[in-house]
């Protein structure tokens, strides 16, 4: 696939996000700095129809980046354009164009998948006729149809994850952002999810995933950005990043260079 010809669907420009550290946190981490920079001047571009992977260790700033892209939190500086709309200036236009899934976003226990699908379709302003058709297709695709009237609290973890996934894309978004898509899932559910991501890609959707699992990136991603300590260290196609090595070895090489230089 010739990436250069493709449309830039997501442009991230100099995103920066800092957090205040409480006195308690300062003590815990034995530091005197009051402000922690979670994401530091981060830039990258994702093209239409590709799967872009953000790779980095825990605490590198992946989740913070994705939260900024999904407009849940605001960047201190910098911006990101989603399908041409700024996450800072037009967050509601961005929200209607993305699907965001993370394990932190929970569904209310007392509702059924059927109710939740309708509820989130309403929040997204999906037409009832379209909603019905899409619900039937997605529920069948993930085997939720048998559990459509079972309250979320009574579903298995894997089924809950599938319902969350389906609910996050009720509005058929062009950009899908998944934070740690396979974390905490059994191998079967994880395979269902990764297969679905490939399927979405084949439909021309753009997918951004964050993970610390090398094999997931190798299996799925067209391009990868390596984040360490809030900075984008390297961002290129998977082949260019690896340069003939396997991703794991290459990552530790980069990690050594970066952290070694820093300290």
């Amino acid at each position: 696939m010739a990436l250069s010809e493709q449309q830039e669907l997501l442009q991230v420009k100099g995103l920066t996000k800092t957090f205040q550290l409480s006195a308690k946190q300062q003590k815990l981490e034995k530091t005197k700095e009051k402000v922690r920079t979670a994401v530091n001047d981060l830039s990258f571009t994702a093209y239409k129809g590709e799967i872009f992977g953000l790779l980095g260790p825990n605490g590198a700033g992946k989740t913070t980046t994705l939260r900024m892209l999904s407009t849940l939190i605001r960047p201190d500086s910098g911006d990101a354009l989603v399908d041409g709309f700024s996450v800072v200036k037009e967050p509601d236009k961005v929200r209607s164009r993305i699907g965001f899934l993370t394990s932190e976003l929970k569904l209310e226990d007392c509702f059924t998948p059927n109710y939740l699908f309708d509820f989130f379709s309403d929040l997204h302003g999906v037409d009832p006729a379209v909603r019905k058709e899409r619900k039937a297709a997605l529920f069948a695709r993930f085997g939720i149809d048998k559990f459509a009237e079972v309250k979320v609290v009574n579903l298995s973890t894997g089924m809950k994850q599938k319902v969350s996934l389906v609910v996050s894309i009720v509005h058929d978004p062009d950009i899908i952002i998944f934070d740690e898509p396979t974390n905490g899932l059994d191998v079967i559910t994880a395979k269902v999810v990764t297969d679905f991501l490939k399927e979405l890609k084949s439909e021309g959707k753009t997918i951004i995933v964050s993970t610390h699992i090398f094999s997931l990136i190798e299996k799925l991603c067209d391009r990868v950005g390596i984040i360490i300590s809030g900075k984008m260290i390297l961002c290129d196609t998977l082949e260019n990043v690896c340069g003939g090595m396997n991703l794991e070895d290459r990552f530790f090489e980069i990690y050594k260079e970066t952290v070694g230089d820093g300290e």
Binding site: S70, R95, H124
Partner: peptide
Amino acid sequence: RGTIATMLITPIR
């Protein structure tokens, strides 16, 4: 319960 953020990523005002 972490359910409010799920609503906040939709375009609803």
